[in-house]
Design a protein around this nucleic acid. Structure first.
Length: 448
DNA sequence: ATAGGGTTAG
């Protein structure tokens, strides 16, 4: 507060003048923005029902501050702001009500829905905001309900619902809607929605069916491949194993940022091109691009695939000492796998114990798989105890099978029996492995 | 002025 007063005195403006939309936009915290906004309202003494656009601007900027800050910092400010907006009729402005809805939608679904129902003049953005809110809270059915009943849709509406399906791990439904959108022909895909689709392709591996046709669509329509779109194209091709295509996109990027490099490195690493991945990393450093945390998951993954224990260890240390990144679960995942699969089970176990983050099923499973490989029952015993505590029968069915396999390998048939009984009780079912190839002609699935 | 996006270990 003192800082604001001080800077206002320096600027030579009056208090009210300073509380303009611009000053609010530049405020350093939601609280500061709110103080300025309230001061502005006091000065303007708003009682009429006619909304001055300058006031609604100021309100929107204040709300933007609240929505972009962590919930805990702004959650108490929002109701206070809400009250002021109601008193001054500012809430009748669609921009303001949307911005407020967005604020609530980050924290709580129920409040957002109440507000949504109370907004009289809902426009496309109001609906889009509410759909996004449902999607964010995992209720894609409610999101779809709103999507189906909204009077008109724009590209962001499609984007919101498609994104919702993607995050609920239902890419096929997302792809279906995407094609529906193309066929309806009213909304033209923009780079953002293509990014969403492409990242889903990468996840589900349905490259030929969707990913390639999206790429073809981009080329056919001479769309600008912006930074994000470039990244997701490289990522999609890389993940699906089309490293040549990934490289072509990479080469064509007018400027390459850390994410382009990282996508390339990760793609190469996943498919076992360890040397190439590491060469890419060195090349990246040579061009002066600073790696980020994800870059290191690619680098460590490359080391893992090639069994390069020493190099992996060096990169792992360099990540912290040269670049200041604390290792995250992904990095530990690579390291544990690297050590364990090289037979250094004790080191892998100590690494897990040294972790600053809570180890998850993935980490324990990779160590356990290595215990099976090297028939190390001492460590397996310790790992089994941990892993059974945190495994979810629905998602981690494979772990139970692995545990049972290990006991069988050690000839401990009583324990095998116990695990099998446990599996029956929890209705654990190991997901069946599956793979597919695409036989459909790409041209018939293109989206023109 | 309001909504939606990229790279991550088994």
């Amino acid at each position: 507060m003192d800082r604001i007063k001080f800077s206002i005195r320096l600027s030579g403006l009056s208090w009210a003048e300073s509380a303009s939309a611009v000053a609010i936009r530049l405020a350093s915290s939601p609280k500061e923005a709110l103080i300025l906004f309230k001061a502005r309202l006091r000065h303007r003494n708003l009682q009429t029902t006619v909304v001055d656009p300058h006031d609604s601007h100021a309100a929107v900027f204040t709300l933007k501050h609240c929505s972009s800050c962590p919930i805990t910092n702004s959650s108490r400010l929002i109701p206070s702001l809400h009250a002021h907006l109601l008193k001054t009729s500012l809430l009748s402005c669609a921009h303001v009500s949307c911005a407020l809805l967005h604020c609530y939608s980050i924290a709580t679904l129920s409040f957002a829905r109440i507000l949504f129902d109370e907004i009289p003049n809902k426009n496309v953005v109001t609906y889009n905001t509410m759909i996004t809110c449902y999607a964010r809270h995992g209720n894609v059915i409610a999101a779809r309900g709103l999507f189906d009943q909204m009077p008109e849709r724009d590209i962001a509406s499609w984007s919101a619902i498609i994104c919702g399906y993607m995050h609920r791990c239902n890419p096929s439904q997302a792809f279906l809607l995407f094609r529906e959108m193309i066929q309806a022909g009213k909304s033209k895909p923009d780079p953002m929605i293509l990014v969403t689709i492409l990242s889903g392709c990468a996840e589900s591996g349905s490259l030929g069916l969707i990913g390639k046709s999206v790429h073809a669509y981009i080329e056919r329509n001479h769309m600008d491949v912006n930074v994000q779109l470039g990244t997701s194209l490289i990522g999609m091709y890389g993940r699906c194993g089309c490293l040549k295509s990934a490289f072509t996109v990479f080469e064509r990027m007018p400027e390459r940022n850390v994410m382009h490099w990282t996508s390339m490195i990760c793609g190469l690493a996943i498919h076992g091109y360890s040397e190439e991945a590491l060469a890419f990393f060195e090349r990246m450093l040579g061009t002066g691009v600073r790696p980020n945390k994800v870059t290191f998951t690619g680098v460590l993954n490359a080391c893992k695939h090639a069994g390069m224990v020493e190099a992996g260890h060096n990169y792992f240390c360099s990540m912290k000492s040269d670049f200041g990144f604390d290792p995250e679960i992904y990095h530990y995942g690579c390291m544990v796998d690297l050590l364990a699969n090289s037979g250094m089970l004790d080191d892998a176990y100590s690494m897990i114990q040294s972790m600053k983050v809570e180890p998850n099923v993935v980490i324990w499973t990779s160590l356990l798989a290595a215990c099976k490989k090297y028939k190390n029952f001492d460590i397996a015993e310790k790992v089994i105890e941990k892993v059974l505590q945190i495994a979810e029968p629905d998602d981690d069915g494979g772990v139970y099978t692995l545990v049972s396999d290990l006991y069988a390998l050690g000839g401990r048939w009583n324990d095998v029996q116990k695990v099998r009984v446990l599996m029956d009780r929890l209705v654990v079912r190991k997901k069946r492995g599956s793979s597919f190839i695409e036989v459909e002609d790409l041209r018939s699935s293109s989206c023109s």
